[in-house]
Every structure is written in C-alpha cells, then in structure tokens.
Write a protein that binds this DNA or RNA. Sequence first.
DNA 1: ACGTTGAGATTGCCG
DNA 2: CGGCAATGTCAACGT
Lengths: 227, 227
Amino acid sequence: MRLVIARCSVDYAGRLDAHLPEANRLIMVKADGCVAVHADGGAYKPLNWMNAPNTLVELDASDSEDGLVRWVVTSPKKETLTITLHEVLSDVAEELGEDPGLQKDGVEAHLQELLAENPDTIEDGLKLVRREYPTAIGPVDLLCRDETDQVVAIEVKRRGEIDGVEQLARYIERLSLDSSLGDVRGVYVAQSIKPQAKVLAESRGFTWVEVDYDELRGMKSDELKLF
Amino acid sequence: MRLVIARCSVDYAGRLDAHLPEANRLIMVKADGCVAVHADGGAYKPLNWMNAPNTLVELDASDSEDGLVRWVVTSPKKETLTITLHEVLSDVAEELGEDPGLQKDGVEAHLQELLAENPDTIEDGLKLVRREYPTAIGPVDLLCRDETDQVVAIEVKRRGEIDGVEQLARYIERLSLDSSLGDVRGVYVAQSIKPQAKVLAESRGFTWVEVDYDELRGMKSDELKLF
DNA sequence: ACGTTGAGATTGCCG
DNA sequence: CGGCAATGTCAACGT
C-alpha cells in the first residue's frame, strides 16, 4: 500500500464525468492496483476511485506543459482517473500482505436460518417445507404450510422496506401458477418493518411479523441446552 | 487526517457483530473523527469503519492485561469499534483542511432535464405537462400529453431495472384515481433497460424507450447553436 | 460472464 | 428527524 498526501486536482471520466478542484487530499494505492482519493471527512467513501484491475502510469513533470506530475489510472472499460499533483506533503509505502478476511454474524442469512429452525416464531403451527424454494424468478426465502395445510410463502428481510413487499408479491404471483400448491398466501418477516411497507403488505393481502434476532438466537441456545 | 499502519485485530459490535483476526492493515482517522480500517486490496470499502459522530478513546498499554494499546471508538447509537494494536509500522498525521467538493455530470437528474427539454426523443409529438408531477406517493418524473392528448406518465432511470417498472406502476395506479386526467398510460425511459424489466413493463401495459445520453446532450448543443 | 440480491450499504433531498 | 430514492452503489453468490 502506498499513501500519498498531496495538494492535487482530480478528473474522472467513465460512467459519468467528475472533477475535483485543487486541494489537499489522501491518495491511497493498494497492492491490487486500485486507487482511492480521500478528503479529510465524509465517511469512508472516497471522493474518487478506480477499482482493480487497472493500470497506473506516472507521467513525469518534464512530460507536461505545466511541469506537474500526473498519475493516469486506466481501466479496461475505458474509464480514466487523472490525478494532478501540485505538491506532495507526505509519501509512505508499506507491504501489508494478505488479509485473513472479515467474520460476520447477524446478517439476513442468519436470520433466515434461525427462522427456518423455528417457524413457530413467525406464526403458531407453521411447518417448514423448504428454504430457498426455487421459482423461475428466484428463490422464495421460506416456503411453509400452516395448521390448515395452506401453503405460505415467506419473505425474510433484516429491515422491512417497500421493495421486499413487491418481491413477495412477484413470488406469490409465480407460485399461484403452480396449481399443485393450491392457494398461496404471503407473510413478510423482518426485524423491523417500516409503516409504508406494512400498509402495502396489508393492501396486497399479506400479513407481516416483526421478529427479534437476539430472542431467536436465544431459542437456539435453549435448544442446545436440551442435550 | 492520521494514518497508522499496524499489525492489529479489530472487533465491531453494532448493527451486526464482526471480527478481524490479527494482520497488517491501514487505520485511517479523519478530521471529523470517523475511522476506517483498510486491507491492502478489495476496492475502496474498508473492512470495518465508524462514521462520525463518534468518540475515539486510546487505552494505554498499561491499562490492559495483555499490555497492548487499544483504540475504542463509540457512536451515540451504542456501536463500538475496538482496534487492538499489536505493532505499529508507520504513523503519519497531516491537516488537510476543507475540501471544495465534487462536481458531477451525467447523473439521472441531467437525463431527466434533457428529456424534459426534448420529449420528442421519447415519442413523436409528446408535450411536457410538468417535471416532478406530485402525487401522494411521490413525484412522477415527467408528466406529458401525446398527440391524441392522452396523459402519459414517464419514469426516467439511468439504468432500467425491474424496480423502476414497479415504481411506474404505483404512480399510474395513483394517477388513475384522478378522473380529471382521464386514462393514463406509462412509458419507461432509461439509457439501457434490462430484458426482465422490458418484459415486466410490457406485461403491465407500458412501453419502454432506451435513449442515448450523449445524443441528447448533442441536441442541447444544437439548440444553443441556433442563437 | 451475467443476473439477482443483500448491505453495518452511504448519501442527499425533502417533508 | 424520518422516509424515500439514487449511487460511478459494491460484493457475494448462483446459473
């Protein structure tokens, strides 16, 4: 990794066009060749960047009319990022080596897994048919049958927004084409559901349930305690 | 901005839980207090981060049992990022000052603006009623009337995906409640439209048009040349 | 390679 | 402050 702090101006041409006027910024070049230009604020997103793979060419001061060093980064897709260095304040390079990678816990996949093990928490008497039930337009998160044996399609989200309801609607539409399943109803499950999503779900004839992730995880612990 | 390259391990607890095993990484602390931990590869997104506002507390080596320095970053929302420093390889600090900000060209707003000036490029004889026509569920990008004086609702996207079709459907549903507009039809406009979105649009009774941004910009230039 | 979906999405806008 | 839509979204995973 190479870290250059410099007074610089930047131009990007690619999916859109963007320009950064002259100012002090951090230029970060990673081992895989990707480049990011950061200001001293504004969250983790850089002002401009180029993802790997790309090629970085350093144009010498003597090559330009204005006597400034330029870095030109080019991607295979005709995108270019041009950094003009007006004054370098700091320049550090270190080899960091491979990263062992991030371990996550608490994403939607976990929530779906826990709900598949405890469909009762969604609705009393619910039995799992299968997870990721395939349809032509993508897999339904959970397919179940209720106490009356009616098929129930369940869309699981960490946060329940309006898109998830539309997604569930498309799945139900699709499942209804399969006469062997009979009449299918939908349930929208999330850790929290926005008011607008609740309203839309109800107007589509779906029910919705808010579940607690920590509580679900607690149930799993309880099961383990039985052994 | 402060840049520390160190062998470190990291723990995040907040919206989810995440852990980074010991390895060499860059720790970036910006002037606004936000913190990002970067590996030497993997695009611009950090492995872990904390956005401003937050508080960074440096725990001295003598405070911990294992004799290691820890940085504990805490946000008002109970999120914590804990960085354990095993060995510092480099430590640089610079004041960068304010950034004048990014200038962009070529985003959806521009496309909508150009289309509003040249509705003909969407469909012959189309006349603009107004941009951002308000409804209870949000503004319709462009509301027009065609040659036969029928009202046409137009959804503009840079890239046409399935969500945009659903959005257009909701608007049309809404506009149909206003009897003064008569029968409303929908057109989905984007620089490129995915096959699935085209199919869904057609099945909803909408037409779709792919437009060329550079060509539209060219038309604007042509208009300017008339003066 | 392409398409779909999730994300600690982030960010900006407007009510 | 909360909802909503755009983003050069990115990144992971399945076909």
